[in-house]
Design a protein around this nucleic acid. Structure first.
Lengths: 126, 126
DNA sequence: ATTATTTTTGACCGAATAGTCAAGAATAAT
DNA sequence: ATTATTCTTGACTATTCGGTCAAAAATAAT
């Protein structure tokens, strides 16, 4: 008996912070020290909740797919496609699923547009 | 007097190997040990020729832009846009220049297509 | 053949990496 | 209030990271 302490932080909020970090530095470009500093949590809490760095990305990515924040969604989608999918079949499948349900005639142009924006080549409309 | 030894390897060939490595693992996902193994060269030779890991990427990227190998070119372009540009203004400028001279009505669709191919979401035409 | 200059070699370095864990603090259920 | 369970803390580890360097080998020019 005794269910123990409850989590002191809101995983959803933390995953947002982590998501934006990944967008800013890339997946391999983001270290755990970066995540620790950005979230204010310690490694133990992060690992007991998300399991691994990859687990953190997957959770943040999945969250973003169920949200309206298109900035977060597109950013993580790009990182997932280029950096994470090659080393995680699960992430590759998540992208597959997203693509299958979001396929439109202009999807490729949308992706290209997102990448140009992400890299700062274009800023607004054109 | 005495001009000293000549380089024992062909930088162009080496830069191709390095370029494909970056495409396969990403920039931050590729270590110098990876490069050493893939090229057969040792760190000293690589550093005396290219200066740094970033120098290796820039040289491989620049080479690819002057070539016909579209696979290599698109692959490195994607890596450059998403991973390297944020940490190198020089690479950002290279992409800017490329974009300025290659801007077409369907450039965004082309980029999106390249990224979908890179991540294995699509394989051939569609 | 000597020499000045260059490249190659591979051991080495401090810093950063992802991940671990035992001990302590908190708390939900009894 | 006790207790079983959970989360938090932060020090710790082994490994990998990009990069350096002195010595050795090679060679182009004289």
């Amino acid at each position: 008996m005794g269910m123990g302490r409850n989590r002191k932080f809101d995983p959803t909020v933390v995953l947002h912070d982590i998501g934006w970090l990944f967008i800013k530095n890339g997946y391999n470009g983001t270290s755990l020290d970066d995540i620790v500093k950005a979230t204010g949590l310690l490694r133990g809490s992060l690992y007991s909740t998300f399991g691994s760095k990859l687990g953190m990305f997957i959770a943040a990515f999945e969250l973003s797919l169920h949200e309206e924040d298109t900035q977060l969604k597109w950013g993580l989608l790009l990182i997932a496609m280029l950096e994470v999918a090659p080393q995680s079949t699960k992430v590759a499948q998540m992208i597959q699923t997203w693509y299958a349900t979001n396929q439109t005639p202009d999807i490729e142009a949308q992706i290209g547009h997102a990448l140009l924006r992400h890299s700062g080549i274009i800023t607004k409309g054109e």
